[in-house]
Write a protein that binds this DNA or RNA. Sequence first.
DNA 1: CGAACGATTGAGCCGACTCAATCGACGTGG
DNA 2: CCACGTCGATTGAGTCGGCTCAATCGTTCG
Lengths: 238, 238
Amino acid sequence: MPQGGGPCRFCHLHPLCLPDHLLDAPSIAALQRAIVPEPPKPRGTFLYREGEVRQAYYFIRAGSAKAFVTDEQGAECVTGFYFATDMVGALSLAHPRYTESVVTLERSNVCQVPAATLEEICRTDGALTQRFYGKLAQAFDVERHARLRLNHASADERVADFLAEMSERQDRRGLVDDNLSLSMSRYDIANYLGLAAETVSRSLRRLQEDGIIAVKGRQLQIKRRPALLAAREGSTRS
Amino acid sequence: MPQGGGPCRFCHLHPLCLPDHLLDAPSIAALQRAIVPEPPKPRGTFLYREGEVRQAYYFIRAGSAKAFVTDEQGAECVTGFYFATDMVGALSLAHPRYTESVVTLERSNVCQVPAATLEEICRTDGALTQRFYGKLAQAFDVERHARLRLNHASADERVADFLAEMSERQDRRGLVDDNLSLSMSRYDIANYLGLAAETVSRSLRRLQEDGIIAVKGRQLQIKRRPALLAAREGSTRS
DNA sequence: CGAACGATTGAGCCGACTCAATCGACGTGG
DNA sequence: CCACGTCGATTGAGTCGGCTCAATCGTTCG
């Protein structure tokens, strides 16, 4: 348990948010004191908008959010999703302004860390700095994965990969379960994967017909995980 | 001029490689002493391969290289291109092993910096560390741009965007010129853009027919730059 | 000079998009 | 409590952009 006090002491996500081996460092205690828990945010609340001056980083305690940019035609391009334990805003570490907008997909709880405070603490703690830049490195890997998926995968493969990714992230949140509750719409999924919503719908149906998953609206069960993982790559279809 | 000695003193790319305001720092001098100029590498030389332990970072002095990963089907996926003044290997900063393979596209000159040395120097210089992580942040932005391009752009838009990107990078190298010399094959371009080589060929022809560029093999001239920039986005076609 | 590779062009096909209709779930107000 | 409106999800029909396959043409290098 952290001796630094602050609201983290009672947060059940604590071990996931900041790994244990760092918890004794004085800078972690300072960080925890800087954390501002915010009142629950209803669905559709913006944490921030693309182009605004970066003023804070966020940690999601409960709920989910989607990130998107607006292209020159004014169209929304979904760039990712955030769930509990995710740090939001790390992408903008090297920018003075947010590079994407983030909006909640359901009633969500978040913690806020003022950017100035976090940067001040990092100035005296190289290890912590590296830790946050590590988030950026992770984000890069995710981005590259997404790009390669777009490059060479079919609609069915993309959807399968998306489900596997969602499940994997749920596992990492400590919730190992074959049931997924998708908080985003088919349109958001489609946009994220570079598909039409109708195509996502059809791909899900095909996966269900193959007995790999069971879909009921936004509730989803993975029935044959190995087959799902195989469907991510171009498994030679029968 | 750097007083640190080392081979950088005589390198004409110096002002681009490491910006001036940092040149006095002792750690820069140490970095320069650590730089190992290598003999010219012929076309097809690997700087490193995906999966190898990261042992060095590279700076390209002359020539060019392509980066790619190999997917589970054994197919090559081109992830990017490197040119003079580019730092190669920054993507793997947070990984113990290289995450992509890099191979020269033509006879090229590169400088090598042993990873251990660079990391040792960074340990005592937070500003320099931030500088290299900044490279990672840049790479993230490039990757996101590439992904959004794949998501929502047509073949013609992708090709136009690619040419604009190439030209922009040439400009940043200090060579403001409407002539581009593409060192990579149509197949590499196509792979990078998620297209077939034939489609790239056809898109180039269309751009030429519109009087936007002139193509002759790998030599290319930008005749109407504003039109090229407009063609990147979904300019309502006539 | 010939071989090999890259680039271009053409013909035909297919996967995913678009358009359109229907269905279902949910929330609102009478 | 039910009717209605709205939004999201699903399904079908038709179209089209870009892929595949194949042939030709340069070019470069042995």
